[in-house]
Design a protein around this nucleic acid. Sequence first.
DNA 1: TGGGTAAATATGTCCGGACAAATTTTAGGT
DNA 2: ACCTAAAATTTGTCCGGACATATTTACCCA
Lengths: 253, 253
Amino acid sequence: MSKPATAAGDLPRYHQISNILTERIELGKYAIGDLLPTEQDLCAEFDVSRYTIREALRRLTEAGLVRRRQGSGSQVVANKVPANFVHSMRSLSELFQYASDTVFKITAVEMQVPEPEVQPYLGETADEPWLYVEGVRLEADGRTPIAFSRVFINREFEGIAGDLPSVGGTIFRLIEQRYGVTVEDVEQEIRAEPMGKYAAKLLGSSTRIWAVRVIRRYFGEDGKILQISVNYHPADRFSYSMHLRREGAKGWV
Amino acid sequence: MSKPATAAGDLPRYHQISNILTERIELGKYAIGDLLPTEQDLCAEFDVSRYTIREALRRLTEAGLVRRRQGSGSQVVANKVPANFVHSMRSLSELFQYASDTVFKITAVEMQVPEPEVQPYLGETADEPWLYVEGVRLEADGRTPIAFSRVFINREFEGIAGDLPSVGGTIFRLIEQRYGVTVEDVEQEIRAEPMGKYAAKLLGSSTRIWAVRVIRRYFGEDGKILQISVNYHPADRFSYSMHLRREGAKGWV
DNA sequence: TGGGTAAATATGTCCGGACAAATTTTAGGT
DNA sequence: ACCTAAAATTTGTCCGGACATATTTACCCA
């Protein structure tokens, strides 16, 4: 092995070296748990400065293949690059993708054992009663429907039933504020299906229309389900957008 | 301002300087869009080497606060370290939510100016020809259809046309490998609509069915669109799931 | 054989320098 | 006023060096 060439259009040396080392790791020449050759040895092998080797190893570290430890060396911890793509949002409100000044008009509130549609999402708590809230989310004009929603709230928080008529924002936010719990995880599932007659009627349609159904489960810190919401959006008025960005090191070929 | 101290237990100098610069950005001393002082000026201000300043600025870059450009300077692009809720995946393959052993059966390849449906997603490049690839993605059994896809590939990469018959994986990966480019960002949009007759037929249905249409745009490092894919999934066989996890501090903006 | 200490090893921080490459600014010409 | 080319500026790559710090190894003694 010798000094990598850096003719016009070539990758930087440290980039080429990190590609070579990555390939060796992937091929098992350096197995998971093994130490890579020391910086000094790699400098000799590739005939480059220590700086260049350190940049190459930094890339391997950022890629998650290697962990470096002072006095110890560079240990292989993975043999594939977990290139991460990340969709992030500043708050859960961004998850809904409708404006923050929309209104939730409640049509029913009661304790209820969830119907079969929802039970698969509840696990062991499927047979217990939940605080059921039903309603229509409207644009700020108070008239244009956005979605029909069924919300199941963990009965630990049934005390918020009295606050619900005044809910301008979101129910889970109400729970967080009233009970000091925090939503740590959210599972969301999107699918398309024909909308039920009842829901369609509430959304102002007398014919059978299609819906995009969005189910969201909100989990607390201990993994307990705080709330489940089942939302039906008219298909012709719904789209769901997300932006993913690469984080960390670039993917290797 | 002077050389940061490095007594025992102190943070490294570059870490201290990046903290100071982060605070200035958050306070608006360097606003979004502003250029930070040059490396040279910062070396003078903090009385440290260029290496130390570059390490500090690297940290700001990795945190997403700053973008550095050779010949131009270091521009503030954000004044807060982003993200509370994060949906992450190890590779873009996870975005598709079908198994990795599926097969893409190609039905057409040609240069083409994209049709009106796609043009809003192309911006200034809407009038130019793209390499058009059309096909059906099948389960590993080679028979069960998953989705009908139209793919528009930036004509810079038209050389991959010859590789396409053998594409077992994904087209963007082929582009990455062949041209050494990297997908940095992806925009995805999901909506439901009736499926066109042609697509439905290719998916084995003689009646008018509903589809979940998923449009994805893949961007390279310079913000250029590398590829667009328009995928039609039969609604009854499609669902899209995501898991979001809280990261960083609790609480709301 | 086990424990403690010193020495050796390997990476981390930081310095200074040089040249390359990309971008911006300046100067000159039409 | 606009355009083009050259010069200046700013960051990127890479070199060599020194000292600090964390870990591992070697050695000695009970």
